[in-house]
């Protein structure tokens, strides 16, 4: 059995066609992760008691349980519980009407929140204590210190890591295929169900994932250059 180039091209086209689904999964999870993760990171850096503990436990849970289990757990509870709740509320919507993309996006978001909370915490702490003190000493409030002094310095530090998270999300979004959500990978695989040419389908999917992640890496380099202008070479 040879490598069927023409079918490979068919699978490649299918993979590319469903790439927007993969990008939607990864980017929505990234966005949710940044917003909620920043909240959790700030809670820990400023030692807000309850929220800081909550954030710590959350990170341990999400990092300790494989994402595919989280996804399957969500999927099972969604399909089982949703209909019961919907019935109780006299809604006509049923779990089978829900696009599985949302379940996958939710699972990825839970994962990305934990990751981003950790990396932002590191970035916030990497801005030295002196910067906080100087800000307080000229009369800035905690909020002003965070938004005017600390974040502008922490964001460039965290950018390469955020891009890594995005790459991780793009890769992990592929597990959406275990709940039969049609994304980049599943698009390519569905094309192969008639002729069992799975190798071609997987090669096609791999190349598209690789291409996506290489572009994210490139973007990361560009962004980093632009955002660290203030750290120009010292001229004494």
């Amino acid at each position: 059995m040879g490598f069927d180039i023409s079918f490979f091209l068919v699978a490649l086209r299918e993979a590319i066609k469903y790439t927007p689904v993969t990008l939607f999964l990864a980017l929505s999870a990234l966005l949710v992760g940044i917003v909620v993760g920043l909240g959790l990171a700030v809670a820990r850096v400023f030692q807000l008691r309850v929220l800081a503990t909550l954030s710590r436990v959350y990170v341990v849970l999400i990092k300790g349980i494989p994402l595919v289990i989280i996804l399957l757990l969500l999927y099972m509870t969604m399909t089982r519980m949703f209909d019961d709740i919907a019935k109780a509320l006299h809604l006509t919507v049923r779990s089978k009407d829900i696009d599985l993309v949302w379940v996958a996006a939710l699972a990825l978001s839970l994962w990305s929140i934990a990751n981003i909370a950790e990396l932002l915490r590191g970035a916030l702490l990497s801005v030295g204590k002196g910067q906080y003190e100087a800000a307080y000493s000229v009369g800035l409030s905690r909020r002003q210190t965070l938004f005017r002094i600390i974040l502008p310095q922490a964001v460039p530090v965290s950018l390469p890591m955020l891009c890594n998270t995005l790459i991780g999300l793009i890769k992990w979004s592929s597990i959406a295929f275990v709940i039969s959500c049609v994304d980049l990978l599943n698009g390519a695989l569905i094309a192969a169900t008639d002729n069992y040419r799975f190798l071609e389908a997987y090669v096609a999917a791999a190349l598209v994932y690789w291409g996506l992640n290489l572009s994210v890496e490139q973007m990361s380099h560009q962004l980093e250059k632009r955002l660290t202008r203030y750290r120009k070479e010292a001229i004494h």
Partner: peptide, 16 residues
């Protein structure tokens, strides 16, 4: 704090 100001050993200028 608004009536005092501080000059630090390590300067602590806002890097950004």
């Amino acid at each position: 704090r608004k009536q005092t100001a501080m000059v630090f050993q390590n300067y602590n200028l806002f890097n950004n």
